[in-house]
Design a protein around this nucleic acid. Structure first.
Lengths: 202, 202
DNA sequence: CCGTTAAGCTAATTATGTTAGCCTTTCCCC
DNA sequence: GGGGAAAGGCTAACATAATTAGCTTAACGG
C-alpha cells in the first residue's frame, strides 16, 4: 500500500489566521465561524483550538493581521515618492486595500474583541511605530509643528478610512463619481494644510 | 386572588428595536443576541418573532433606527446656525452621537445585514433625502458647483465618521489631545474649501 | 527505538436561533 | 354583552455553533 495519504498539511497559528482572513473577505466578516473555517481547512472545529484560543482570539488575530498588512501596503505605496504625490499614493493604496478586503475592512473598523488593555503583540507595536515614523515624514512639506503633524495625520487617516468605509456601506448613493470624490477629498485636505514658507524650500 | 399580575407590558416592533439599540450601546454590538434581548424585555426568545423577523432583520432595523437618530441629531445641531459655525456644530454633534452610542456606531459602520438592494424603508428614504437637502445648504458659503458640493459633503462625512470610528477603536494612542485633533481636522477641511468671491457676500 | 509533542479526532455540554403549535388576553364589531 | 379574531405570549423541539475533555497518531529528537 503506497503512502497515498496526503502528507496531511500542518497548520500553524499564522496560516490559520491567514486563511480566516481570506474567509472573511470572501464570505463577509459576520459569516466567520469556527465551523466554516474548519471545513475550509479540512479539519474539525475542535482541532482549531490547537492553534487559536477561540473565536474571540481569532478575531483579534485577524485584526492585527489586517493592521500589519495595511501598514505594509501604505509603506510600499509611498516608497520613492514624496510630498503631495506620496500622500495621494498612500491614500489610494489605503482605499484599494479596504475595497479589496471587505472582511478585513470590517475587522479594522470595530473595537478589538478582546479589550485591548495595553498588552499587545510586540510585532504589531513595532509595525505601528514604523508606520508612525514614516507617516510623519509624509508631511514634511508643510508648516506644522509636532502637535500639528499628529493632528494632520489623524485627520488624514480619518478621512481615508471613513471614505472607504462609507463607500462600501453604500452611503454614497448619489450619481456623482465616487473615485472623483475621493481624489477631491484628499486634495481638499492637502489644500487646507499650511504651506511651508517658500524661501525655506529647495 | 387579586389581579396582582402586572398589566403585562406590550411590545411592538419599534419599542423592541429601540430596546435592542440600547442593548448594543450598553453591552456592545457583538453581544446583541435574541436571548439577551428577550431577557431584557422579560419575555422568551420565541416571542420576539412576533415583532421582528429574526436576528438579521433586527440588525437591519437597528441600522435604520440609528441612521434616523443620527440624521435628527445633525439637523438639530445645525438649526439656527450657518456657515462654518453650522459645520462645526454638526461635526461635533455627529461625533458626540458616535461616542454616546458605541453600539449604533458599529451598526452604522457595516454593510447592512440584509443586502440593501434598493428596497428600503420609505421612512428612511425620506429622512435621508431631508438630510441631503439640508446638508447641501450647509455649504452655501463656499464656491462649489453641484458636483463639488457632493464631493465636499462626502469628504466631510467621511472625515467625521472616520474620526469618530478610529477614536473608539483606539487608533489614536499618541499623547495629543483627541478633541483638539478633531477641531483641527474640521477646520483644516473648511480651510481647504474654495471661498466664495467676497463681493458676492452681504 | 522510544518517549515526547504537535495536531488531529470523537463525544459531550452549553448556548443560540428558529419553527411549530398552543393558550390567553385584548379589543373590535355586532 | 357576546363572540370571534388578532396580538402577544408560552413550551417543546430541533439545528447549528462554540467549547471542553480525553483519546489517538504522526513526527521528531535523543
Amino acid at each position: 500500500m503506497p503512502t497515498e495519504a496526503e502528507p496531511r498539511r500542518r497548520w500553524n497559528r499564522e496560516s490559520v489566521v491567514q486563511a480566516a482572513a481570506e474567509l472573511t473577505d470572501r464570505h463577509g466578516y459576520d459569516a466567520l465561524s469556527l465551523a466554516l473555517l474548519a471545513k475550509e481547512l479540512g479539519i474539525k472545529p475542535p482541532s482549531l483550538y490547537k492553534h487559536i484560543g477561540g473565536l474571540d482570539d481569532l478575531k483579534t488575530a485577524i485584526q492585527t493581521h489586517a493592521t500589519q498588512a495595511l501598514n505594509k501596503v501604505m509603506l510600499e505605496a509611498a516608497a520613492a515618492r514624496s510630498g503631495d504625490a506620496a500622500v495621494l499614493a498612500v491614500a489610494h493604496a489605503y482605499r484599494e486595500f479596504m475595497k479589496r478586503h471587505p472582511g478585513l475592512q470590517v475587522a479594522l473598523s470595530r473595537p478589538s474583541a478582546t479589550g485591548h488593555q495595553g498588552i499587545q503583540d510586540p510585532e504589531l507595536e513595532a509595525s505601528n511605530r514604523q508606520l508612525l515614523e514614516f507617516a510623519v515624514r509624509l508631511l514634511d512639506g508643510y508648516d506644522l509643528d509636532d502637535q500639528g503633524r499628529i493632528h494632520a495625520l489623524r485627520a488624514l487617516r480619518s478621512l481615508i478610512h471613513g471614505f472607504a468605509l462609507l463607500e462600501t456601506t453604500g452611503s454614497f448613493e448619489y450619481a456623482v463619481s465616487v473615485p472623483q470624490s475621493f481624489t477631491w477629498a484628499i486634495e481638499n485636505y492637502l489644500n487646507g494644510l499650511p504651506a511651508k514658507a517658500e524661501q525655506a524650500r529647495r
